[in-house]
Amino acid sequence: MSFLVNLGLGLLFGLGLVISGMANPAKVLNFLDLFGTWDPSLAFVMGGAVIVAFFGYRLVLSRGSPVVGETFHLPNRNDIDHRLIVGPALFGFGWGLGGFCPGPALTALSFGEIGTLVFVPAMIVGMWAARLLSDGNLSLAGVRG
């Protein structure tokens, strides 16, 4: 049951990515090209998503619990650690190079472009490596695992 519900929610998310233009790396890169062929569309994607989620989360979280499971799994940390700077800096660099962040890359697989077909496996391996490094509590310049 959860598989099917999640499939539907992933589909809704993915359709949003296609309709908004976010699944098109050319559009993402133009959004990021402030001093060139700037296309401000993606600010509207972010705006639409945040407005809906801002009010939607309030509504949902005012209930006691989710439909399935006992509690809402919400991040509760407030500290700013090294990883919170290094990770997003790397992510932003890769995003600017390829025009893909994780969701759009997965959704774009179905368009079958060679760039996407090599991006996604490399991304999955990169995610896996970060998790192993993180789970192993390896000490990297004082970074907590």
Binding site: G87, L90, F91, G92, L97, F119, G126, M127, A130, L133
Partner: peptide
């Protein structure tokens, strides 16, 4: 880079 950075 995107994969590693986003999870890190």
């Amino acid at each position: 880079i995107v994969g590693f950075g986003s999870v890190w």
